[in-house]
Design a protein around this nucleic acid. Sequence first.
DNA 1: TTCTCTGCAAATAATTTGCACCCAT
DNA 2: ATGGGTGCAAATTATTTGCAGAGAA
Lengths: 133, 133
Amino acid sequence: MQLRMTNQREMILRELKKSKGHLTADELYERVKKFMPRISLATVYRNLEILSDVNMIRKLEISGRQKRFDSELEDHDHIYCVECHRIENLEISKNQVELPVEDAHGYTITGRRLEVTGVCPRCQKKIAKTKKQ
Amino acid sequence: MQLRMTNQREMILRELKKSKGHLTADELYERVKKFMPRISLATVYRNLEILSDVNMIRKLEISGRQKRFDSELEDHDHIYCVECHRIENLEISKNQVELPVEDAHGYTITGRRLEVTGVCPRCQKKIAKTKKQ
DNA sequence: TTCTCTGCAAATAATTTGCACCCAT
DNA sequence: ATGGGTGCAAATTATTTGCAGAGAA
């Protein structure tokens, strides 16, 4: 199966990179639609699936009901705001997370995913304000 | 809001505990239905939501499209088979994962979720067999 | 020209909700 | 008896798919 670089695919890739990652399919759809008003959400879904299959982008399976996509391919972890659902990258040196190779129930380990949850600075301020009132 | 321990709620809780965790709402529904044929899937969903709100069970947001629920409240991590989507518990001593308190982008950290991905022993065997043929 | 890709609409999957009745407290 | 809980069906949300025509190689 030969991949073709269509205008739609190129635009989707460009907008995902521009956003610095972590968009859902429909968020990306809204952005791309500004430049290509006739593009369909199905095209966005199909392309995100294909592009992550060929490792041009990364599919994140993290908190929240929708899948998110990341244009950053380097290994990194994420921090997730439980208030506003924002997701940001986290650079953790790899040796800070030791994988339990022996007690992995016999699994062949292929990767790991670390997600830290918390409250982002913006939401901390919002909460502080609410309490004052 | 006062919680009531209905037969349905009790049964859901019991079957989840019996299964040792990690069931989806519809898997649990199938099990509970054996004892209560008239229970509805909506009741299972509603109860899982309520029970995790009051911390009697835990909602897992991990790989796969469906949410899973865990009767084990103790902190632990998970290992996920990318072939058969099985999920198992992983006991990792807490000091093996150091949280990046300083470089957490100003977040107040409330928790962390570590998911290791791999291939379970059963699937390793299956794959080995397929290759031989 | 060829075969992948696209837009559209319809289908599916997972979950949630409105409503009238039920039952635990 | 009161108000949370239930079953049922319909609604929502997220995602996928069939199909006929479009366009990249």
